[in-house]
Amino acid sequence: MAPELTQYLENIRGKAKLGPADESGVMSELRAHIEDRVDELTESGMTEEEALKTCLGQMGSTKMIARQIYEAYSQGSWKQVLMASMPHLLFGGLFVLNWWHYPGWLSIILVLILATAVFGWSRGKPTWLFPWLGYTLLPVLAAGILLLYVPAGWSWLALPFYIPLALWWLFHVIVQTTRRDWLLSTAMLLPFPIIAGWFLAISPSGKINEDSLQRLSYLAPWIGLSFLIMAATTATFIRLRQRSLRVGLLAASGMLTLMLVVYYSTGRFAIATFLGLALVMCGLFLTPPLLEHYLARKRRRTLPDKKMRLA
């Protein structure tokens, strides 16, 4: 395949952000169309280079085609809406119904989250998987918090294992998601500044004690509400076709929910803490696109080598 054609298709592939199940079919179809047109043009007397140039001009800009393909595939079904919103609904229910203090319910939800994440991962990473995948990071965080309670000395033994493992899992999940679409990474990580905000609201010192449990009981309905807002955000995100609307929705919902946390934490936040959380929220909209840009550049650099090895 000519390098111009490889580059053209690669540009569409990178911007269309399709799942693996759809991607190969769409790209094969476009390639077959271009090959047919080039054959016809070369038969009419053009050189192969001229034919390819003319054909790519007739096909249209990669940006326009990729945007239209994205919009044709981006809208999820109502079943996907339900699947994607489910982890937020489960956590929302846990707090709204005040069942958070039953370890059994929490364990069931965590096992369900891990099982669903493994199932979705093995089924070609459909769009509904990413909210579940985000929640698989919760046990990692919980383990980190539990390390604070390990007797002095033991935590120094656990940390060298915990920190690399936790960072590896976090990095792995984010990179895998960003490879598909940075916006899915942002959607996946959106609950984390909110969860961190609530955690700091109930326990500013970072340690859980009697006072923080009482505070958790008092705040539980509002914590539940913030999860329900995220469920509604995810549902709308799955149904929207346009990318710009999706970005706007996540940004508005993220900031609104963060304001809710600040409002109901009734003065327990220092200005610096609030600014820190707002900064983390902004980082969710800046870091994934930068990471995606880096990964795409890396992929483009390795692409010709791969083609040569295949040849």
Binding site: I12, V26, E29, L30, H33, R37, Q58, M59, G60, S61, M64, I65, Q68, I69, E71, A72, Y73, Q75
Partner: peptide, 15 residues
């Protein structure tokens, strides 16, 4: 028309 835009239209109809 721009031929590349045919496929998103076909895929929308298919969906």
């Amino acid at each position: 028309f721009k031929e590349g835009t045919l496929y998103p239209a076909l895929h929308r109809l298919e969906k």
